[in-house]
Structure formats: C-alpha cells, structure tokens
Amino acid sequence: MTATPPGTQPLLHPLHGLLLAFPIALFPSALFADITYLNTAEVQWTNFAAWLNAGALLVGGFAVLWSVVDAIRLSRTAVAKRGLLLFVLLAVMWIVGLINAFQHSRDGWSSVETTGLILSIVSAVLALGAGWIAFSRRRSA
C-alpha cells in the first residue's frame, strides 16, 4: 500500500483518468454541436457531433473495460460501491452513446432531431457524473 493517507487517494490510475477525460470532454461537445445543428440546420454541425460521439466511444470504450477490472479488483475493499457505480455509469453512457452513433448515422434532419438530442444529453450527463465519481477523493464508505 502507498503512504498516501486513505482520505486523499484517488480512485483511478492516471492512465484510466486520461482515457476517461475523452468521453467527459467529447460527449458534452457533441451535445453542443447537436444544439447548434438544430438551431442552424447547417449539416457540418451534425457531422461534428457524429465524430465527437465516435471519439468518445472509441477512447471511452477502453475506460469502460478498465472500470470492469477495477470494479472486480475493488469489490472487497471499502470503495467497492463506488467502483461498481463508476462501471455502471460508464457502461450505460457507452451504450447510450452507441445508440446515438446509429442515430447520427441517419441522414439530414433525422440524424439529430429530438431522439438524438435526448441521447446526447443522457450520454453527456452520465460522462460528467462518472467523472465526478472517478475523480473524487477516495473516502471510506
């Protein structure tokens, strides 16, 4: 064990943190691109949203896998619940993001409309929530 006092130790390995930074930044960016598309009907914004969402999925996918390992590794420790919660949030975020990738593969206005906007909001909120939990200092349950 490290010498760091238990109350200040982060939950994540630094590399896991870097992987997680991608969905945290890209899902909300995709949301803003969607909002701009719905306001302007300028197709480049839905193209941006599709790529941002794809980037969040690609790198975020590794963060999800890592969180599985962590959830199992931490299952007998004091932070088991947080490890599990982080995994669940990331897994749901990723699945919602995947559905949104298909939604954004539709053409024209159908690539976003209400469904795409809701999916973007959900994946952005889940990414931010997962980040909040992941980067909080470890506290005993």
Partner: peptide, 8 residues
C-alpha cells in the same frame, strides 16, 4: 450530391 441532402 447526397442521399437526401446530408451534404447540405
């Protein structure tokens, strides 16, 4: 130039 205007 597109399926249904998705290039603008």
């Amino acid at each position: 130039n597109s399926n249904i205007g998705e290039r603008g």
